[in-house]
Design a protein around this nucleic acid. Structure first.
Lengths: 359, 359
DNA sequence: TCGTCTCATGTAATCGATTACATCATCGAG
DNA sequence: CTCGATGATGTAATCGATTACATGAGACGA
């Protein structure tokens, strides 16, 4: 069908490297060399090529380049619930780092994809991405072992239990301990715990920290003061209603997410219970609204942007070292960089106070 | 560097369609036909091929397919401030629709990219994406005219002023009018306006709606009750401080975002001013926290998920019609579908009340 | 003056799929 | 029995870049 080559006139479709070469009177190899700054090209030729690029309005086709180079030019971020602002901030940080290296950022919501596992396995197993960042710690671990060859993966926030994987986390246990110790320090002896999803790694770690702090304060844990939850506003409200139904109530609760803390306080307010006068509340995350919620939320700050930033940089480092390497396996070349733990911080605001004087 | 070619033995790297063909004793064309369900293949052969796919663990390389088919297999979403939960919800909805069609979703934060315009122009102008959804109405309009050939673009939320573009919006003007009419209906005559960024389209539309409602209520607008803002929590707090400094204060304010409403109320609380007893506040968006903020926020609900959903479906429709079309131009084939306007809804909660009795 | 080395550039293979076209066998109608 | 239609499959071009290798022109030392 190409019998009538469009010859040298106007470019109907997008110009290709061949068009540029013809315009400049050189070969495509030379154009490529000029544009990728590899190999030596005489200043004159370079000049001609650049002019031809200008004239034709040429833009290299990244797909073609990637195919040849055996890359995809993108990384995938697997997010549970994209609409959660906590994750979207991390995503933003990842995007910023990726744009420095001209990497595309693909997102996939692990909870939305109907045949979720299948799609994720696609991402992992295949040549769809040069690397993955997994923000969802609840994905079946099998997914990651199974595939014979896979691109580098970094787990962020919710690291799976299996060790030896590259991870970026915060010290959840210590954060929880700080939160509960803060309550104990204010004089609270009856401290509730609002959990995340049962299977979730974070739930486990933060619960461990909660127990640590109780033990340090010489307080016996009370199983009936452990409220189930799932990190959402609604779960916080639900926990509040359960708190209200209790005969013997905690004077303080540690919520394992700010969203749950807001939901909890909101429901308390609706029922006419004062925070922090009648019950103290500590959150976890320090999302934006925390500093503006009423009462301003005492919480544990996670450096969200730093998490995304660190995860992206770690992934890029892994990608580079596994590219230099002939086999696809992660190499020891870059040294052992697979685990970063970022610090958390207690932010004391208004939602905590000494327990009400009584009993 | 690749001098030692891995030769022909076991599949060190990922298997290709050629490996499958060899395994099944057929040609690559046949394998392709089986896998893409195009063309006729005998049941036996199909069986053999499927078995070979199984055995080799073959996954097609999407990059190669896309190159051949002249597509990229992805759409780009340009978001201002990825960390904004409002946008991330929309993004989530887009991702859901895109996954139905096995399209990749690439995100780019228009405010983070250092040489932002250059990168965006790249996305537009080049063969990087099969389509774009633009959530940022503040990008220079030139970007979109300039490029001779571009993939289909859908503007969502913040539609540019230029008409004739495919857009998904809500009736911002009507929403603002409803919000302010609600305040007027409660008896307020002194109503302030907390604006978004000056250049922003939404700011303009919502301000127009504000003026509409004032006019309907026979209230003269007061320029000194117009507070600048930028949709953020901080801007809301700042507006609150300005409100406090006023000699003559509005008894109600309409904030053009929920975040600003929260920031405003938060600062009021800090200064000991009661909402809604002393000043009523209406927001815009109905973000998740709105129903749990204290006081629960009266606001205008935007159907965020529907916006993302509609934008994605519109884009996919445009992509299909422009693919059938020989030229890259949008065709009239699919009929004129380029503008969807979704309804908004007034949600009355606790942050509004009749004005305090005085003068 | 003649290799030899370097530098600039061109030719063509390559990445991994899709797909236009060719080929061959089979079958039914005339 | 022959011819054309049909169906299954193979061959090879193609998408748009990168890059290994070949080539030819000068420069330079012997």
């Amino acid at each position: 069908m190409n019998e009538i080559r469009p010859s040298a006139q106007a470019f109907a479709a997008t110009p290709t490297i061949g068009d540029v070469a013809r315009h400049a009177g050189v070969s495509t190899a030379t154009v490529s060399r000029v544009l990728s700054r590899t190999g030596r090209v005489s200043p004159q030729t370079r000049e001609q090529v650049m002019r031809a690029v200008e004239e034709t309005g040429y833009r290299p086709n990244p797909g073609a380049r990637n195919l040849r180079q055996g890359r995809t030019g993108g990384i995938v971020v697997l997010v549970p619930y994209l609409s959660n602002p906590f994750f979207s901030t991390i995503l933003g940080a990842i995007a910023r780092v990726a744009s420095e290296t001209a990497l595309n950022v693909l997102v996939a919501d692990t909870r939305e994809t109907d045949a979720a596992n299948r799609r994720i396995l696609d991402y992992l197993h295949s040549n769809r991405a040069d690397g993955l960042i997994v923000l969802d710690g609840n994905l079946p671990q099998k997914l990651f072992d199974a595939s014979s060859w896979r691109p580098p993966v970094v787990f962020a926030c919710e690291a799976p239990r299996a060790p030896g994987q590259p991870t970026v986390t915060v010290d959840n246990r210590r954060g929880a301990r700080m939160a509960v110790a803060h309550l104990a320090g204010l004089g609270h002896r009856r401290i509730g715990f609002v959990a995340g999803p049962p299977q979730n790694v974070l739930t486990g770690e933060r619960h461990a920290g909660y127990l640590d702090a109780l033990a340090e304060a010489g307080i016996a844990p009370r199983p009936d003061w452990l409220f189930e939850g799932d990190f959402t506003l609604q779960a916080g409200s639900l926990a509040a209603r359960r708190w209200l139904a209790l005969a013997e109530r905690p004077t303080a609760v540690f919520c394992t997410s700010d969203a749950m803390a807001c939901g909890f306080i909101s429901e308390m307010h609706r029922q006419g219970v004062q925070v922090p006068e009648e019950v103290s509340v500590v959150g976890f995350d320090d999302i934006d609204i925390a500093a503006h919620f009423i009462p301003n939320l005492t919480t544990i700050r996670q450096p969200r942007a730093s998490i995304g930033d660190a995860a992206a940089r770690m992934l890029i480092a892994l990608m580079q070292s596994s590219a230099g390497d002939a086999s696809g396996e992660a190499s020891a070349a870059g040294g052992a960089l697979p685990a970063v733990e970022l610090p958390v911080e207690l932010i004391v605001r208004e939602s905590t106070a000494p327990p009400p004087k009584r009993d």
